[in-house]
């Protein structure tokens, strides 16, 4: 059967069963809300850790990683349920998901280079280092020299 409006669409989307649909939407809404609440909880936890006398950097990083994963989960539910991508043909899903993989290298490269820029400036711009380095961590970070910078001297 042809779709009334578009010749290229060959299979008619059947209207979903109303009750099942509502149930699915309700479930997703509750799930998104719960994830958001957990995220907020983690955000406040990070705040409390930061307020403490000696913030544990690893712990903060771990919590931040958790929030990232939770956000990805949220994104997954929005895209697959609300945007109905989950109901599309598999190939269609792939054409959306695969190009997004480019973000992996996009993020890694940009972040690495940002970090490297910081290290370079800390090494060659004492004013930058002195004026921006958090006071508590200054001692610790002084020891850090990346191998790259060392080789630059030789």
């Amino acid at each position: 059967m042809q779709h009334p409006a578009f010749e290229e669409v060959t299979v008619h989307h059947h209207v979903q069963d109303d009750a099942a649909f509502r149930k699915k939407v309700r479930k997703t809404t509750i799930l998104l809300s719960i994830i958001t609440v957990i995220e907020l909880g983690i955000g406040l936890t990070i705040y409390t850790i930061h307020k403490g006398a000696n913030p544990n950097a690893t712990l903060v990083l771990m919590f931040k990683g958790m929030v990232c994963i939770l956000s990805l989960a949220k994104a997954f539910y929005i895209v697959s349920v609300f945007m109905h991508l989950g109901d599309e043909i598999r190939n269609m899903i792939m054409t959306i998901v695969v190009p997004l993989m480019l973000f992996i290298w996009f993020i890694i490269a940009f972040i690495t280079d940002g970090n490297s820029y910081k290290n370079l400036r800390n090494k060659y711009d004492p004013h930058f280092k002195e004026s921006t380095m958090p006071k508590k961590h200054q001692q610790k970070d002084k020891k850090e020299t990346t191998p790259v910078e060392k080789s630059g001297k030789e």
């Binding site: 955000g43 406040l44 990070i46 705040y47 930061h50 993020i107 940009f110 972040i111 280079d113 940002g114 970090n115 820029y117 910081k118 400036r121 800390n122 930058f128 280092k129 921006t132 380095m133 958090p134 970070d141």
Partner: peptide, 14 residues
């Protein structure tokens, strides 16, 4: 993210 990583200090959003 890149700019944030190029800084020694970044404000806590909270």
């Amino acid at each position: 993210g890149s700019i944030r990583f190029s800084q020694n200090f970044w404000p806590d959003p909270n």
